[in-house]
Design a protein around this nucleic acid. Structure first.
Lengths: 236, 236
DNA sequence: CGAATAGTGTCTCTTAGACACTATGTC
DNA sequence: GACATAGTGTCTAAGAGACACTATTCG
């Protein structure tokens, strides 16, 4: 903030600033990410993270919400959190762009996604995307990978996993979230005990879910707690 | 990345992009942050985080290293890590600036700091700066506060605390780092046991430090480990 | 009935932390 | 000697996880 150039508004190097959002959702028990088909060059037709330019009078968080709505039709995500900025000089072949990256949780992405614009959103298995280093253009592979790291960490000491679930959910639903994001299997009994022991994690609704196989589970809603202490460590 | 404006280089809203660095060091057993006296308006003479404009052909990390060298005379920090981006439209009264924030560790800041430029760097108690909400201009109070949170978290599951120490250090030196950053007192015996039990955290040099009061401590150097597993939790 | 899922309890191993005790230097 | 700091050990409580057992539904 102290470079002499600061005095002269014409002297600072102009950058484009964008936001990119890694939208996670769980479908069929596996973690997916919402990607849009690029409707323009470069990389026309290939998949990319939803995102776009920040407007001159808009803060970064609001820009992320707006782009998410425009490109995926989502009104508002259950969780939206910034985790880093990416600004290598050659990360975008067109111009110098610094992007601010967010990760988001939506419990259920609307099916016929795609806003008023041309972009068409698809839900893709995170594991598939990460397995193919060239599935995403720009540095979006790295951004997705970093987002997954942040999401995994977040599940360890916050209650955000609940944001993947519907308003009322069974403990096993919550367990499947942890299993999908962490990519591990968790012991059903131990998980149940642990979640119920953590103060304010979940609250009983008093009702049960009927119709499935097996004993009908009791249903819970989100409790007031935001942090899990001691943290819920994932197996290594 | 899919806004139609992307096609037209003149259509994207131009931003200034800066980096700001929160440089932590420990002096007299307390955590300090390096601040520079602003040599320009606005807020001439008041304190701010070192930082400045990213150059057109420079990546963010290198920009942070360069600004650090220019403004504090540091050749290279022991640790430099990005932790967020700040871009509220009115965070800088002069123009629209998005800043990418880093936190850094230096074991020993050179005393007659201040580079070739006008900026004069000072080490200030972090607790003092945070206690006075108006000590820093822009959103630097928030940035410092967030940096401290990240540093505290980093000490829990990485070995970066060693970067605050000299090449050879006593276990008690390391303990004082944790105490300064976390703002707590730790049991001397338990800390010693724990550090020595963690594989690859520290390696004995075979020598001792002489001259102080009390039993001369054995000296250690950094081990190969980068992560502490299980994490070293700070008392709540 | 058996299969499937939910819910509860028990046991063991590890870790965190309080704290006592010993070791070795300076004044 | 007193004092200060370093280094080691012991005990206890809490948590993690393996696993067994019970409960309740459907087909």
């Amino acid at each position: 903030m102290t470079a002499p150039a600061a005095y002269d508004p014409r002297a600072f190097p102009p950058f484009a600033v964008t936001v990119d959002i890694v939208v996670f959702t769980i479908e069929d028990g596996v973690l997916k990410v919402a990607l849009v088909e690029r409707g323009e060059e470069p990389y026309w037709g290939s998949l990319a993270l939803p995102g776009g330019f920040v407007r001159p009078d808009e803060d970064l968080h609001k820009a992320a919400i707006r782009e998410l709505a425009e490109e995926t039709g989502l009104r508002s995500p259950e969780h939206l959190e910034q985790f880093g900025a990416y600004g290598d000089p050659d990360r975008d072949p067109r111009m110098r762009v610094v992007t601010v990256a967010y990760w988001a949780i939506v419990p259920d992405l609307p099916e016929p996604v795609g806003g008023t614009d041309a972009a068409v959103a698809r839900k893709v298995l995170v594991s598939d995307v990460l397995a193919d280093r060239d599935a995403l253009q720009f540095d979006h592979h790295q951004i997705l990978s970093d987002a997954l790291t942040h999401a995994r960490d977040a599940l360890e000491d916050t209650t955000v996993a609940i944001d993947f679930c519907d308003d009322e959910f069974a403990i096993s639903d919550l367990r499947k979230v942890y299993e999908a994001v962490w990519g591990v299997e968790l012991d059903q009994g131990n998980f149940q005990n642990k979640v119920l022991e953590i103060d304010g994690f979940v609250e009983p609704t008093g009702s049960r879910r009927t119709g499935g196989r097996g004993r009908p589970p009791e249903l819970y809603r989100a409790g007031p707690a935001e942090r899990i202490d001691p943290p819920f460590r994932r197996p290594r």
